[in-house]
Simulated assay, not measured.
Amino acid sequence: MTELAVLARLSGDEEFPVEQLTCHPRLPLAVGTSSGCRSVRVLDCAEGRLRELAVLDVEPGTTPWGDSGPQAVAWHPHRPLLVVADGESLLRWTADGPSDPVRTPAGAEYEALAFSPDGGSLWATPSAEDGWESSDVLDPATGEVTGTARSWDTGVGAHPSGELVATLTSDQGATHCLFARPGDTAMRVQRQALILDVDGYRAPLFSADGRHFVIRGNAYVDMLEVFAFPSLRSVLSTTLDEDRSVEWPRENLAWDARPGVLWIGTPTGSLLELDVESEEATEHASPDALPISALAATADGSLLVARDDGGLVLLSVRPAAPALEPNNDVAVFLAGTEDAPLDGELEDHLALTDGTSSWTDDDLATITETGPGDPTWLQIQAQMNRFRGPATT
């Protein structure tokens, strides 16, 4: 039986509880951000303690939909280096403290940041020059644009191997989950892609062993969708709140170090321990019943929980998971796809699946009939094809 034990607590601002926790992938560090709040909290989670290393004063962030959101932040994958977007500059924090801001290119209003898996480049979106039509590749030290890449939004999830990343391109009609291998500086998007209905999703999150990933959304319902990797098979698709009477936290998921176990933070303050393959869930009650505002897993597999009163709690998970076996899942995935062209309309080159069915370019160009159970995006595609008439060659 899994047991959760409180290791440490830290108080905070009740007016602006942390809404997003971003943990360093290898070091006992985390950062907490909130919508509409200028404070970015840098946290030390080492050796079962929880203490605040710094509070950075940063301009509040925005979302791709123009709403107020947490600031855009990114941890270097190996070093204790945090980069935060602050209007017309990038703030850098290291173990020695904050350094002088680095100015971003004229016109840049970066809403999401991510380091390349080797830490050599900083990926930023939207592009300073082309807006949401593309993204920028920056020198992390100078903020200089060293290249551009395909458009992406929301965030980037890295496979634990560092050999593949996943991100989103969102649209009201449909969202593509794109997979990319890190190139010399930029992402090289692959033709194999996942398609999701409507928009409003959070960044993909890979499990610790890389054999699953989860996507949280969408704009209309509190969906939770889990896929196997590298097959992209749909493992679980569920709605967190069927009657939409309760607002669930947007950043409320964390993978356990054990394969296939996902933690879900709830509005009642409890934590759900979910086996994604068996779909069996165990609820761990909260001793104080305070709603959870954010959840993340630290580098050592502990759970970091933010609560509505502004407080933070660090929890240990027992029993601890055994060491993970290395695998070649990314190689298997890449062997079944290829790089998409760097130019032109990306959608013209994607091979799409929703985890259950797949579609080729010809399928999408000729489909005219759908059923009521088909996804909205496919019904829209069929309607457009009927309006245009038969495809010609």
Rank of each mutant, 00 (worst) to 15 (best):
E283L: 07
V261R: 13
A186E: 03
F229T: 09
T282N: 05
A46F: 06
G36Q: 07
E3K: 00
G310Q: 12
T148M: 03
T337Q: 03
A46Y: 06
P140K: 05
H212R: 15
W93P: 14
T33H: 10
L295D: 10
S135D: 02
D343T: 11
V31K: 09
V31C: 12
D209I: 05
P25R: 13
I215S: 04
L81S: 09
D300L: 12
G32R: 00
L91N: 01
Q172G: 11
D363Q: 11
P319Q: 02
L303A: 00
S151H: 09
Y110K: 10
V235Y: 00
L90K: 02
A72W: 14
P230T: 00
A5H: 04
A8Y: 08
V189Y: 15
G12D: 02
T167P: 10
D184F: 08
R388W: 03
A335L: 07
D374Y: 03
S237Y: 07
P249D: 01
A54F: 05
S99N: 02
V330I: 09
L232N: 06
C37I: 10
S116N: 15
A340C: 07
R244N: 09
P267T: 08
G147A: 13
D96M: 07
R211P: 00
H24D: 03
E277W: 02
P117I: 02
C45A: 03
R150L: 04
E338M: 04
D361K: 14
L91P: 01
G311Q: 10
D86L: 01
S302D: 05
A340D: 01
G66M: 04
T94C: 06
D275C: 12
N327A: 04
L90H: 00
L350E: 02
G119L: 12
V31W: 00
S170R: 11
G344V: 11
Q190P: 06
D44L: 03
G260S: 13
S231Q: 09
A124N: 05
G119D: 03
Y201P: 12
I292A: 08
Y220I: 07
S11Y: 14
D57P: 13
H212Y: 14
S293M: 04
R26P: 00
A208V: 04
